[in-house]
Amino acid sequence: MVVRLITDQCEDPNTFYEVYSLAGGSWSEPRSLDHVCEVTDPRKPQAFVNGAIHWEACRHLKNGDYEDFILAYDLGSDSFRGIMAPKSFRSSWTTQLSVSGDGKSIALFQPYLTNTEKLCLDIWVMKEYGKEDSWTKLTTLSPSGPQRGVHYRPLCFRKCGDVVLAPTYGYWDDTGRHELVCLDLMSKQFKNLGIHGHRYYYAESYVESLVLLDKTNAISY
Rank of each mutant, 00 (worst) to 15 (best):
M1N: 13
M1I: 00
R4Q: 12
I6M: 13
D8K: 12
D8L: 12
C10F: 09
P13E: 07
N14V: 11
Y17T: 11
S21T: 04
A23D: 12
G25V: 03
S26T: 00
S26H: 12
S28F: 03
S28I: 09
R31N: 09
L33E: 06
L33T: 15
D34V: 14
H35A: 03
V36L: 03
C37I: 02
V39G: 02
T40C: 11
Q46D: 00
A47V: 10
A47Q: 02
N50E: 15
A52K: 06
A52N: 10
I53M: 09
H54A: 03
E56W: 06
E56G: 15
A57C: 13
A57I: 07
H60L: 10
K62W: 00
N63P: 05
G64S: 07
Y66V: 11
E67A: 02
E67P: 00
D68I: 03
I70M: 01
I70A: 00
L75V: 07
L75C: 10
G76P: 03
G76F: 11
G76Q: 04
A85I: 13
P86S: 05
S91C: 13
S92N: 15
S92W: 14
T95Y: 01
T95P: 00
L97Y: 02
V99D: 03
S100W: 04
S100I: 09
G101T: 04
D102Y: 00
G103Q: 05
A107D: 07
L108Y: 01
Q110C: 09
P111W: 02
P111I: 06
K118I: 06
I123M: 05
I123R: 05
V125H: 05
M126R: 06
K127Y: 02
Y129N: 11
E132C: 12
D133S: 08
S134W: 05
S134K: 01
L141P: 09
S142M: 14
G145K: 09
P146L: 13
P146H: 14
Q147I: 03
G149P: 06
H151N: 11
Y152K: 12
R153G: 02
L155K: 02
L155A: 04
C156K: 02
C156V: 00
G161L: 04
G161C: 04
D162N: 14
V163K: 11
T168P: 00
T168I: 15
G170Y: 07
D174V: 01
D174L: 04
T175K: 11
R177M: 09
E179K: 14
E179V: 15
L183C: 10
D184S: 15
M186C: 12
K191F: 03
K191R: 14
N192R: 14
L193K: 08
G197S: 08
H198Y: 12
R199L: 10
A203W: 06
S209Y: 04
S209E: 11
L212S: 10
L212E: 10
L213Q: 14
L213N: 06
D214C: 13
K215R: 10
N217W: 13
I219M: 05
S220T: 01
